[in-house]
Amino acid sequence: MNGTRTILDPTGERTVAERQRVARPASLDGLTVGLLDISKPRGDVFLNRLEERLVGIGADVRRYRKPTFTKPAPVDLRHRISVECQVVIEALAD
């Protein structure tokens, strides 16, 4: 049968955009740090402690929360964090 040696690509054939990581800040002093709670149980325990430590070293902390841990953060939330913070920490699991 003709064509058995040529097959069609089953993948999405997407072109991946490569982005460089932002350089790590030398100090958090004066920076705004976003703490993103993904709504997993006890994620707030971890983030509350982090907030205490971060405020203690002079960072400005803002808290955010995803509606549910099972879905990606809504676009609007991601945008807000990106314009309001220089650094973000995400609490991933319980």
């Binding site: 049968m1 003709n2 064509g3 040696r5 040529t6 097959i7 069609l8 690509d9 089953p10 054939e13």
Partner: peptide, 21 residues
């Protein structure tokens, strides 16, 4: 179908991958 693939202009957009002998 095989003849349409062999002689016709393809309507499929996927990348073709040749399998080596």
């Amino acid at each position: 179908t095989e003849l349409a693939v062999r002689f016709g202009s393809s309507v499929l957009a996927s990348r073709r991958i040749d399998v080596a002998d």
